[in-house]
Design a protein around this nucleic acid. Structure first.
Lengths: 357, 357
DNA sequence: TTGAAAGCGCTAACAT
DNA sequence: ATGTTAGCGCTTTCAA
């Protein structure tokens, strides 16, 4: 059936600005102006346009708008694993700040695959994300750092921004926003706390010299030991991933090996959860026999029993700050910020006991 | 300084397809074809183009592409709260499937504000999201349902899809994809399990008749009681939100009130975590004195002590299925699916004891 | 205060 | 196998 000439409506298809204009009896420019709300339009005209907008159930086409204005109102958020322990809190901060600044969030996971991370950043470039936040530690090989630095420069040239959240800078001359927190200081403080309780044989679970996060935590741990003239027994350094399963198995093996230790420093609360379970199943009391501490202070720490003594990391603030800085950089080529961490004393660590003494 | 005529490169701005074409000595159409990879291009030409692509660090402009093809490669994901207990797992499923189908994910939170939810869905319409997944329970007032139904129809008309994940249908004639799980059946089974252990006075924490999720769980609970001819004591129905703080406080008050109960059915694992803590602090043993069970089977359930007996919900599969169905609906106007739930027996529930007997 | 029209960067239909 | 070109829907000068 032939359309009437006056009927600009396209069967079923969403309304365009042109149809709204026709229905309100104005030009598309006028509709665009009432949409923007930032340009003077006669009150009567505005009313008519707004009615047409409503009647046609109009929504702008973000692609068309972005194409013209080169402004996407989007930020991107790249993370290893959505299920990761602290992802949710950093994400919350990112989303909160992005919303506050009128942006929408794109999310992607990389599953610890550096190649995928690089690829995903390019996907975000295609979408013209105004900031690309990369969260969490990484294995920083020289080639990887170089590729990331190149992406940082590309993003910068495009008016966007690479944001490293909880990960070290790519180099002094790289245009980037870095929002870190003090891994080494927290580990140093925590180790010192254990030392002050009399523990000298402290197992470290989850240490990985290649991953930035744990490497830094490892440095703090060694520095604390060294400051008291204590050796760092390699047998007590158990490398592994950030899962409760690893914590569980590693602790079992530690117990089975009859290793000599009075405290466990889990590089992550998640690992600590596994360690606690293994200890409980083995009938080892915490903290009477063995002290256990973690790192991150995720909400889970409060649900464990005993409640976990750990290092607090301001995850949510990290996320908020990442977006806030990136979107308001006012020409600053680089922005770097390191947030503090601190020991939260709860129930899982106590004075060194007489276990195996 | 004047540009050389041969220099199409724009100082600092990202390269466009036009520049690539010029550098490779071909037309933009040819570049577009090698980009798409789905159209025959002479090998030699392709090589030249690919080199130009690389040398100019080219990435397509997704907006421009979407504008032409009306195809955004984006799905949207709307959730009450990123920190919510099971968000992460549904999100994981959604992201996983979206990635598998070559889509990017937009994420938004609503903080239990229905108005914000409606607004956010329109934001997703602007972005031409191919599916808009709304996760979690809601307070379904008639006006709200009507507005959502209208949005479902708008999305449908635009070739997109409203997906309700863990939330009931908006009506038989509404174009939608619904992926639910069995709240009532799970609650019925769990209550029966407690009943079979001899518990007849079961407190329900977090019940809210207005929210869809807990209302359904409440129905299952009552049905189980009724099936044994047992009454449902309103004093044991404690309304509240899904937080461990609520679980903690509600349990303390229950204890203080000297209410008569031998088991606690927390409507959510999160609430159960709080209940467990309150019980532990009050010196009440679980499960010897009081049994505690939850609902959701989030990973936390395994970290609690005792390990939590709960109802398993296939969160990740829910998310995956939501996207899979929505993106492959092949003209189906409505798609509805309800997944099963089942009791997972762990340590926190046991035979009714002699507490206060 | 309003309208006309020129792009924004890309894809796809149509030519060659 | 490759080039030409007409839009996609919107914002924004520039005119009136």
């Amino acid at each position: 059936m032939p359309k009437r000439a006056s009927d600009l409506t396209r069967e079923g298809k969403p309304a365009r600005i042109k149809e709204v204009a026709a229905r309100a009896g104005v030009s598309t420019a006028t509709v665009s102006r009432v949409l923007g709300g930032t340009y003077p339009v006669a009150a009567a005209t505005r009313i008519r346009v707004q009615r047409a907008l409503r009647e046609l159930d109009y929504v702008v086409n973000a692609s068309a708008r972005a194409l013209g204005t080169a402004n996407s109102n989007t930020v991107a958020f790249i993370v290893n694993d959505i299920i990761g322990p602290f992802f949710a809190h950093i994400a919350h901060g990112v989303e909160q700040q992005a919303t506050a600044e009128g942006r929408l969030c794109l999310v992607c996971t990389t599953h610890n695959d550096p190649a995928r991370e690089l690829a995903v950043i390019n996907l975000m470039r295609e979408r013209k994300a105004e900031a690309v936040v990369v969260v969490g530690g990484a294995v920083q090989t020289p080639e990887y750092v170089q590729r990331m630095a190149k992406l940082a420069r590309s993003l910068d040239a495009e008016g966007s921004r690479l944001v490293l959240c909880g990960r070290p800078s790519l180099g002094p001359d790289v245009p980037e926003t870095v929002v870190e927190y003090d891994n080494e200081g927290g580990a140093f403080a925590m180790t010192n706390y254990l030392l002050s309780l009399g523990h000298e044989r402290i197992a470290m679970l989850g240490f990985d010299a290649k991953a930035t996060t744990t490497a830094e935590r490892g440095v703090g741990y060694r520095r604390a030991l060294a400051s008291r003239g204590l050796p760092c027994d390699p047998a007590l350094l158990v490398p592994g991933v950030f899962t409760r399963e690893f914590g569980y198995e590693a602790t079992r093996e530690l117990l089975a090996s009859k290793a000599d230790f009075t405290a466990i420093f889990a590089v992550t609360d998640m690992i600590a959860a596994g360690a606690l379970k293994a200890l409980r199943k083995a009938g080892v009391r915490v903290p009477e026999d063995v002290s256990v501490v973690g790192y991150d202070d995720i909400p889970l720490a409060l649900d464990l029993c005993p409640e976990l003594t750990t290092v607090h990391v301001p995850h949510e603030e990290l996320g908020r700050t990442a977006i806030r800085l990136a979107l308001n950089r006012a020409g600053n080529p680089v922005q770097r910020l390191r947030m503090g961490t601190h020991v939260v004393v709860r129930e899982s660590a106590g004075p060194v006991g007489s276990w195996r003494a």
